[in-house]
Design a protein around this nucleic acid. Structure first.
Lengths: 345, 345
DNA sequence: ATGAAAGCGCTAACAC
DNA sequence: GTGTTAGCGCTTTCAT
């Protein structure tokens, strides 16, 4: 006995396949009596419509896709991702839409994956990690598949965008540090071809006007450590550093402390994205909560709307929030303490 | 112009659909010349086979599923999950198999989701978060869909299992603490109906024989804090606590420190799962690295093998590793310092 | 209110 | 080595 099909249910209920189909979809009136017979038969046979057959017939996969062109290692330590997915899923679950994920490692595979998404695997995709000039935007437009872009993508596009204001919290952070007396404030950015990194870095520059204190990292702990070391070796070293994520911030302040600096007394430190452990570090890390979960919800809602035909809208999610903690608590030193002078707190 | 189909390619290449199909699948010999014409036509039309049509015809979705019955909030702060997915994906990517994820919030939705997986959405599923007696095992057996169980599920099943030895690192940890002089060692477990929590707790009991120092948490920071408070209020309080995950451990030691205890001098603390920030806390947290990435790879490989017909095997992944750090570094106190006596380190 | 039949785009017997 | 012809299990006209 193989899996029951709609034909089996129809036979059992003494009707045709069309009736069974309509009993469920409600796309035409079915008498209560037969409806009941159909449901009973389906229940009894444990029938579930085949999603691939339905997908073929309706040209709807009832799935949306996310393709990640990240190194699996980076994915593994990413704090943004699971929360974002959780948000996406909480919306998709309501409509019984599935999420199809694919991680790819090169451009060819990525194109093929997007093509597959457009050709039956999914009804639309969410684009993450946008580059300032992102080939995927034009590519997907050619593929004519609905897409939602996460982030402040500035290029030409008619896709829906879900943006957040990353600039404001950076500026607030700097204002906060300034108010505490800091004058030399550095920024360790993420890769600057990412729009989100770029926006944060630009906000930093607009607010401070000190490009000589800007460094481009890659979100890994290693780059956080190395660039911190570089900044602290500067003749006129910064007394505060704002990092583009918490991982780099932690690695950075660990380095500073290992070299005798006290955080926040000798060096104030702030991260970005508010990792769930950041409040538990010691000193607790000032960060910017960006509500990835909520952004996932909004992106999913926006995509479903696009798929349903309500096209091309722009949504701004107001969800970033500065979380001030000990790592930026103290007043800035009047003179920067020298590095490499080991001393106990 | 709509999306090109295999028929369009066939027409353009001057052959039939079957030839196009076979040119790609290699399931029957096609002359080099026509093969080239076919590929050229496909390339020119940008044709990609429709995955839903193929799925219907072959009864293969070329996808595997993971269904999570977790609260989205828990998912969002889970350190295991992204790394595991990364591992799964790195294997699936090679075969161009997609990963279909669904998060469900109740049993009905969960059953429906598994049924959909079995009926065209996927070719097999990976079961996470196994309970000691898990209804899904029988359910999926009835559905006759390949499945791989992650963890030391002991119930009756013919599904493949990917197990790890969680007991040994717990015992090693306790031995380590004992060697440092600790005599009262407590354990804050995860929910005991989860097999992995249960196995760890049982190992703890076998090694210590002190059920009075065992508490059942739920992996959240809140439960870590509350149960730590409870343990520290004990007349003869523990001098060391082993937690079932890092989040509870952090919350626990933060609580202890807020009440005047020094970690590790007054209380040694160890976590489990080695969150990527745990090495950067201060004191750095002793934990057990469980290589979720590798387990994801093995689970995916095992599932693909099951799908391919190589059924029902049991794989043990030897990947857990004790990571000793400062939080368990110091010698145990000869007498436990009292709680609530605020004092500076 | 229901039935009959024609696809959706592919694969797989079965021919030759 | 290639063409022909049925399906896969649904949805959706077109009838009645």
């Amino acid at each position: 006995m193989s899996r029951p099909t709609i034909g089996d249910v129809a036979a059992a209920a003494g009707v045709t396949k069309a009736t069974v189909s309509h009993a469920y979809s409600g796309k035409r009136p079915i008498s209560v009596a037969t409806k009941q017979r159909v449901f009973a038969a389906a229940e009894q046979l444990q029938w579930v419509p085949s999603s691939s057959a339905r997908a073929l017939a309706t040209r709807r996969a009832n799935a949306v896709g996310i393709i990640l062109a990240r190194d699996p290692d980076i994915l593994a330590s990413d704090t943004f991702f699971p929360a974002f997915i959780a948000g996406v899923e909480s919306v998709l679950a309501r409509q019984e839409v599935a999420l199809v994920m694919q991680v790819v490692t090169n451009r060819t595979a990525e194109e093929r994956a997007y093509r597959a998404m457009a050709h039956g695997r999914s009804d639309g995709v969410i684009l993450l990690d946008l580059h300032r000039s992102d080939w995927r935007v034009g590519f997907l437009q050619d593929l004519r598949i609905p897409a939602v872009l996460l982030g402040a993508y500035d290029g030409e596009t008619s896709f829906s965008r879900v943006r957040t204001d990353d600039a404001t919290p950076v500026k607030e952070l700097i204002a906060h540090l300034r108010a505490a007396g800091h004058e030399r404030i550095a920024h360790v950015a993420g890769p600057l071809d990412y729009v989100h990194s770029y926006v944060r870095a630009r906000a930093y520059l607009e607010e401070t006007g000190t490009p000589e204190l800007l460094r481009e990292g890659d979100f890994t702990a290693g780059s956080g450590r190395d660039l911190t070391a570089e900044l602290l070796r500067l003749p006129d070293r910064p007394t505060a550093i704002v990092y583009a994520n918490d991982t780099m911030a932690i690695a950075g302040y660990s380095h500073a402390r290992a070299h005798g600096l006290d955080v926040p007394r000798d060096l104030a430190v702030a991260g970005f994205d508010d990792d769930h452990l950041s409040g538990h570090l010691s000193p607790a890390l000032t960060s910017v909560f960006t509500d990835p979960r909520r952004r996932g919800e909004v992106a999913a809602e926006r995509l479903l709307a696009d798929i349903a035909g309500d096209l091309h809208r722009e949504v701004t999610v107001d969800c970033t929030r500065l979380v001030l903690r000990e790592s930026t608590a103290a007043a800035a030193p009047t003179t920067a303490r020298p590095l490499l002078t080991k001393e106990l707190p």
